[in-house]
Design a binder for these strands. Structure first.
Length: 715
RNA sequence: GCGCGCUUAGCUCAGUUGGUAGAGCACUCGAUUUACACUCGAAUGGUCGGGGGUUCGAGUCCCUCAGCGCGCACCA
């Protein structure tokens, strides 16, 4: 027995060394596995692409959970003989990264992006991204992730950019990407458009004002945003509303707070006759619904608010911020005697998730993806392309009930605004020269100007499963490993990312990006609160690994954590699995001490029964893992190792070994060694470091546990 | 408003097709020059949120009510 077992297991002194050995072996790369005869070249493939962490800093416990889960599947499949590939990468994360760097520069130097200019800002962000990347890569390794580093990708590197430009052009040529002037979600704080999914709603108290535009105006309207009424062009009423029927079609002039307005009365079925006065002041330039009403009634659209959320009208309101303009208008209404009613209401206001800026709906010229248009030659829309594979079972979502959420989201989906007014990201691959437009690649010749905007970060991450495999080239990797087997990610990005991947892959490759979606929940603290910087309750995976070992962190994150459900993590729980690693260590110490020089011997009846018990456990655990119940597999293995092997079998072995029955002794030695060997293999995907370290003392040949064959599941 | 989920031991959670309620932690009592104190043994603890139904049998399936959480939509 090795002397190292005389001291408690020390993960700190072990884990980094073991990871280096794995890396050196080259076995994270399936090609090396085949080359060394450890995997059949013809074996079925199993592939996962790592959801690329944002290069915005460091990894958190959510990442640690993701890595633990994915590594369990990858390591199991590798041991089961699959051609197993897990591709690493990072995400440039456009707006998230840019805003982190911008904030930092503002704080340290008091400069805005405009002070620095595009080139300088991009240089600074690039530096920051590189630093974050290096930190993240080292953290991924600390967690033990068996990623094929030879295939690492970055969403903004050259091959991925090529993929982005290629898809953009294909979608443009198919008429699915268009440039249009439409109401978008404008974030005045971040100075960019954002997608519907980047909005969060917050309940706030507001006031609903009921008033007339002018004394002689026949209809009273209600609004929470009186300042926008200077942009009104109509009052809409329900077609069946008898109160207003006689006004429909008429046009009225008024001067509203210094601004001359022309208001037509229109009938539109979208108007709820029960809300307020049943009459809606239509502001087409600053409301989504009003924009649509304007479409139907051919109304003009008068912008009265600019990108800085300031008024752009004649008279006293000009240049005022919207909030100030609101009080001014209300004051004006009062003095004019037009205000009939003020009611306190709770309203949902829209905030930009990233900056907390209040969203201002503005008409802007932006790039969109049309999700409803039929794709030429395909007979279906992108929406259907997203819907079908989940409906017909080509994609399985775990837990299953999330498919309802997914369908619900798609039903409400509108065209996807893909252009952003930020600088970090894939620049929109469109070049202009006068009336000419070129899409996809920079044209030859003088005088071409590229579109100023960049693409929504989810555009490039939508391509991730195939851009990482070399698409648009028809690489051997793409052929072998796509569609990928599993996508494992948080349920919070089901719409952002998972849906977009299904969309992009359906369009570009006419297939699915993955067969199974495994959605993990949020990692919360011991009190069930979200981990956040402001609460200071973040657990840093690096510190945890340092104190308890990555193996302990992995087990704590996996055991009892069902997919789709939030999990609570505490140092106590992690400590329990550190103790477990030590338990394995001491089991080994006992078994190796007792079996030194043991020869092969027939098993007694009792001992063969135990062998069968282990085979049954192996079968059970294998089934659990195959059916994605790793939380159960982990618990069963823990229980068997500690409470069966250590507490019972080893305890009764002590009696056997001090007894007289030589056959029983010989049998028990064979049994203990075989149980230990199999438990190490079965536990390896969960606790790769400690099992690999123990393996060095148990193995009969100079091999790595990570490439051992998975135990047989039947005797 | 529409939809989804949760409610099981003091706490955190499992419970795969319906077949005698489980784990970890905590707590209580006890052991111990032991492979391991990063230990072991034992004990306590649940009318599975309420009500109704299906069934020989329901934590599990159906209906209903309540509380909590989440998503989406509306938000004039």
């Amino acid at each position: 027995m090795d002397d190292k077992f005389l001291k408690p297991y020390d993960p700190k002194a072990t884990e980094a060394r073991i990871y280096a050995e794995w890396e050196e072996s080259g076995y994270f790369n399936p090609d090396q596995m085949i080359k060394d005869g450890l995997t059949e070249a013809s074996a079925e493939t199993y592939s996962i692409v790592l959801p690329p962490p944002n290069v915005t800093g460091r990894l958190h416990m959510g990442h640690a959970l993701m890595l633990a889960v994915e590594d369990v599947f990858v390591r199991t499949k590798r041991m089961q003989g699959f051609r197993t590939l897990w591709i690493p990468g990072t995400d440039h994360a456009a707006i998230a990264t840019q805003s982190v760097v911008e904030k930092d520069i503002m704080k340290k130097e008091g400069k805005s992006r405009h002070d620095l200019g595009r080139e300088e800002l991009l240089r600074r962000i690039g530096d920051f991204a590189n630093e974050s990347h290096d930190t993240i890569v080292s953290q991924l390794k600390v967690m033990g992730a068996s990623l094929d580093w030879s295939r690492e990708a970055f969403t903004l590197d050259a091959p991925r950019t090529k993929a982005v430009y290629t898809v953009f052009k294909q979608m443009y040529d198919a008429g699915l990407i268009y440039r249009g002037n439409r109401i978008v979600n404008w974030d005045p704080k971040g100075q960019t458009t954002i997608s519907d999914d980047e909005i969060v709603h917050e309940e706030r108290k507001g006031t609903l004002y009921t008033f007339k535009y002018a004394k002689d105006f026949p209809i009273t309207i209600s609004t929470t945003r009186p300042e926008t009424k200077v942009g009104d062009v109509a009052v809409a009423v329900h077609p069946d509303d008898t109160r207003y029927a006689k006004f429909v079609g008429k046009t009225y002039e008024a001067v509203f707070c210094d601004v001359p307005i022309t208001v037509r009365i229109v009938a539109d079925k979208e108007v709820d006759p029960a809300f307020g006065t049943g009459a809606l002041g239509v502001t087409p330039a600053h409301s989504q619904i009003d924009w649509e009403i304007a479409d139907r009634h051919d109304l003009p659209r008068i912008p009265v608010i600019n990108e800085y959320a300031k008024m752009t009208v004649e008279g006293q309101l000009n240049g005022m911020k919207v909030g100030e303009a609101r009080s001014t208008v209300v004051e004006w209404l009062r003095t004019e005697g037009l205000l009939e009613k003020e009611e306190e209401v709770t309203q949902n206001i829209s905030l930009a998730e990233r900056t907390s800026g209040v969203i201002e709906p503005l008409p802007k010229l932006q790039w969109f993806i049309d999700v409803n248009k039929e794709i030429p030659g395909r007979g279906k829309s992108l929406k259907q392309l997203m819907l079908d594979p989940v409906k017909d079972g080509r994609i399985e979502i775990i837990p299953e009930h999330f498919d309802k959420t997914y369908f619900h989201w798609i039903e409400n989906l509108r065209d996807w605004c893909i252009s952003r007014q930020i600088w970090y990201g894939h620049r929109v691959p469109v070049w202009y020269r006068g009336e000419e437009i070129v899409v996809g690649a920079a044209p030859e010749g003088e005088g071409w100007v590229q579109d100023e905007d960049t693409l929504d970060t989810w555009f490039s991450s939508g391509l991730w499963t195939f851009s990482t495999l070399g698409w648009p080239e028809e690489t051997p990797e793409l052929v072998a490993y796509h569609p990928t087997a599993l996508l494992e990610t948080g349920y919070d990005i089901l719409f952002f990312w998972v849906a977009r991947m299904i969309l992009m892959t359906g369009f570009a490759l006419d297939t699915v990006p993955f067969k199974t979606v495994y959605l993990h929940g949020l990692v919360r603290d011991a009190q069930g609160r979200k981990m956040s910087k402001s609460l200071g309750n973040n657990l840093d995976p690096l510190e945890i690994a340092d104190t308890f070992g990555a193996d302990a962190a992995r087990m704590a994150l996996i055991v009892g954590n069902t997919p789709g459900t939030d999990t609570r993590i505490s140092e106590d729980k992690i400590k329990g699995y550190k103790n477990f690693a030590n338990k394995l260590w001491n089991i080994t110490r006992y078994v190796l001490t007792e079996t030194e020089g043991a020869k092969d011997a027939p098993l007694t009846e009792t001992d063969s029964a135990v062998r069968e018990e282990l085979a049954a456990l192996a079968a059970d655990v294998t089934r659990d893992i195959n059916e994605h119940r790793i939380y159960m597999a982990a618990e069963k293995l823990y229980h068997f190792a500690w409470h069966r092997l250590a507490d019972e079998l080893i305890e009764e072995s002590k009696t056997i070994f001090t007894g007289e029955d030589e056959a029983a002794k010989a049998s028990r030695k064979v049994l203990l060694l075989s149980l230990l060997t199999d438990i190490l293999k079965l536990l390896h995907p969960f606790m790769p470091f400690v099992t690999e370290e123990i393996w060095k003392s148990v193995r009969t040949k100079d091999t790595l546990l990570m490439v051992e064959k998975w135990p047989a599941t039947a005797v």
